[in-house]
Every structure is written in structure tokens, then in C-alpha cells.
Design a protein around this nucleic acid. Structure first.
Lengths: 138, 138
DNA sequence: ATAAACCCTATTTAATTTATAGGGTTTATG
DNA sequence: CATAAACCCTATAAATTAAATAGGGTTTAT
């Protein structure tokens, strides 16, 4: 399951996407809209900013704004940033690989094989669906 | 990511599948083979038993054994039993549905839409792949 | 009778997630 | 230039969940 952090991030990005005609958007407004703690959301927006997904303006009248086109923000990127691996097993993760302690041989592990398939199908969706797709409906 | 419980369960089932010519298999042997705590594994095997996935024999010379053909144990069932939902969001789970607190309208939520897709593709694999498939390789 | 092995429930520990706290820095504005 | 608005940063606490342990109970082959 996705963490709240990731869900909040997706909602925040969606909010920013919907308001991209405005110059900046306040943390406060996003937090209120989705009933998220202001401070918790602040941390998330900072992470998104450091990851180059959005920009901000300090001082009075400041706020956050998208610095990329929604179509250039794949969901996989957001999930990986906030949640870490998308794969169901560490031994199958492309970005956060680790061997499984209880597994003798990865090459001979049937569980591994299935989870590679799941990962690939999942990524096929999450790497191609972007913020733009979410904006269409939401 | 799958919990250790689920991973241990899958390994235990695999072990039982490999030794199904033997009448029973000891917790001890499975635990040792995969470096799992005996007692922790015991709890897991009990859950699998209660769920009707395996049988046991008490007393000296007892142990656990599969009561189903490996091909009749889909991975989705094991994962759901030990880990709960397979879906990435509660609002998209078939077996553990719950609305998302931060979401205003499920019907209008673009995140929801994408996660339905991910769920469906994942289930397409996990409901059709069974213990038998894992045994082939592992 | 005894030892081996599963059965059951409760508790503890550890890890992770979620949230809060508190001050620092920048900047528009009057 | 004073002020208030707003983001910036790091640390800590609280809550939840996952993982492991504990300890005795019951069954059964020998």
C-alpha cells in the first residue's frame, strides 16, 4: 500500500496542476483542501522540491508551483521518491535492490521470477501514467 | 513490499511442495533451511493451516503437509492472508476496501483510476500463478 | 511413561510511519 | 526599514505496524 506521504504528494501535485494558471499556491490551501496537517505537508513539498518536481517562492506572496509539465511527471517517480521501491521484493527492485536474506539463490527462486513479472507490469503503468492523466479525471 | 511473514509463508509452502513425497515436514526443518525463527514460523504455519492451505499431524513423527495440489494454491491467496490487501490503495482493494480519508470523490479521483489498473494487472498475475509455478524454478 | 511435535494466546521488542515543534530565512509591502 | 507572510530546515515525539519471543497445553508414536 502507498504511504500517506505518497498519497498526499499526489494530491498536492494534482492541486498544483489544477491551479497552474495562478503563480503560486500556498501550502495552507492544499492542506486545507485535503485535510492534511500543514507541517507534514510542508515536509513533503520540500522533498518534491529537492527532487526537482516543483519550485517555490519565498516571502510574502510566495508559495509553490509546478516547474514541469504534468505530462513529464510520471507517477513512478513520485512513488519512488516518497515511498521507495515499487517492487514487491527487494531482490526485484530496480532502484532499491537488495538481496533477500531468506533466499538461497535468486537465480533459482521461483518467487523472484513471479515478482519480476509483477514489477514489470506495474511499471508499465506507473512509468507511463503521469500527473496529466490524473488531472484529466481528478 | 511483501512482509517477512508472507515471504516466509511462500518459502515454507515451497519447501512443503518439494517434500510432498514425505508424509510430514517439521517446522524445524523449514526454519533451519531458510534461517527463520522457529516460533515465528510456527505462527505462520498455523495461519496457513487455519486458512485450509495445509494440514498437520500432532505428536511424535508429526509435522505439516500440503492438503492441496500446488496448482490450486494461487499466490494471491497467500499474500492476502498474511499481508492483507494487494492493491496500492484501500479505495481500490477488492478484499479490504476502505475509502481514502483525504479523497473527496472516488469517482472523480484520477489516482484511483490508475491504481485500479495496477491492481488488475497485478492480480492477473498473482491469481494465476500458483505454488506450482514457484516450484518449477525454485 | 515419555519424548517429540504441533497448538494457542499473550507479550515484548523493533522498526517504520505519521505528526509535531520550533525556530531560521527570504521577500512584498506600506 | 519594519513587519508580516511564507517558505526552509532539522530534530523529536507519538502512533502504528511488523517481527520476534515466551511459555505452557495437547496429542500421539514408541
Amino acid at each position: 500500500m502507498l504511504s500517506k506521504k505518497t498519497k498526499y504528494a499526489l494530491h498536492a501535485l494534482t492541486y498544483l496542476g489544477k491551479h497552474k494558471d495562478e503563480k503560486t499556491v500556498l501550502i495552507h490551501d492544499i492542506a486545507e483542501e485535503h485535510g492534511i496537517s500543514h507541517k507534514f505537508l510542508e515536509n513533503i513539498l520540500l522533498e518534491l522540491k529537492k527532487a526537482g518536481m516543483l519550485g517555490s517562492k519565498k516571502g510574502k506572496g510566495g508559495g509553490y508551483y509546478l516547474i514541469k509539465e504534468p505530462k513529464d511527471i510520471p507517477l513512478s517517480k513520485v512513488i519512488r521518491l516518497l515511498d521507495g521501491p515499487i517492487a514487491l521484493l527487494p531482490c526485484v527492485s530496480l532502484n532499491y535492490y537488495e538481496p533477500c536474506a531468506e533466499c538461497k539463490s535468486e537465480a533459482l527462486c521461483g518467487i523472484n521470477k513471479v515478482m519480476v513479472q509483477v514489477r514489470d507490469e506495474t511499471l508499465k503503468i506507473l512509468e507511463n501514467k503521469t500527473l496529466e492523466d490524473i488531472l484529466k479525471t481528478g
